[in-house]
Design a protein around this nucleic acid. Sequence first.
DNA 1: GTAGTCGGTATCTAAAGGATACCATTGTGT
DNA 2: ACACAATGGTATCCTTTAGATACCGACTAC
Lengths: 122, 122
Amino acid sequence: MDSHEPFDVFMQECPSREIMQRLGDKWTPLVLLALAGGPQRFSALRERIGAVTPKVLTNTLRNLERDGLVQRTVFAQVPVRVDYELTDLGQGILEPMEILRLWSEEHVPKVLAARERFDARG
Amino acid sequence: MDSHEPFDVFMQECPSREIMQRLGDKWTPLVLLALAGGPQRFSALRERIGAVTPKVLTNTLRNLERDGLVQRTVFAQVPVRVDYELTDLGQGILEPMEILRLWSEEHVPKVLAARERFDARG
DNA sequence: GTAGTCGGTATCTAAAGGATACCATTGTGT
DNA sequence: ACACAATGGTATCCTTTAGATACCGACTAC
């Protein structure tokens, strides 16, 4: 049951905790999944994801870039073009994210039913 | 490449998106993982998780209860005892959460190195 | 010079998270 | 009777994060 890793998310000061919490940022999973198909431009990400504001998308992407999951490339064109793509490290997180996504999509009915039951009780 | 599910996290109004974003709440993964070993009391969860305040822990647990992932049981003892445990639905999300945890713990060095590189550039 | 494109930033408001103190219940010790 | 302790929270206040909206700078085409 115990982990044999040198890092442990249950140790309060362990960096792995912060990293896991970052992966669960509100928009991080969607951004990573949106990049699954290859490099994407900023505006394409905005369109694909839909409800995210530019400020927050920028922030999410900066964090991912800083953590080495995403590579940002600027093309000196006019108008300027910026591509975001997964690094090798970022590729490695795709599968867990897909699993999370599939779970969410598959269990919608059960979760909605549970909510109705809960709300009915008050 | 397209999903054949009736729900799609990339559809802005799809409940699956909200569900996935809830799974990525700041404390949700840790709470679910803390419940992996069986029922836990409120205070035990607080201790195990460490930096979470009671208000936020209550909130996280309420959301999980509402979504049917966690069962809350009150024992009429003195002092009162409250157990939280995973439902069947909640059990099903454990594996994805474990994967996320392992990824986070395994890739700490790479992420930290990426951060240093990023911050060095400014 | 006017308008359009792209990738953002600036500013302000609303919501979520965090720190700290406190409460209700009842058993026990004195 | 009285204070005290344990558990599982609330209540209050403050800070941080997210959201809405407007705008900017570089350049090009008209």
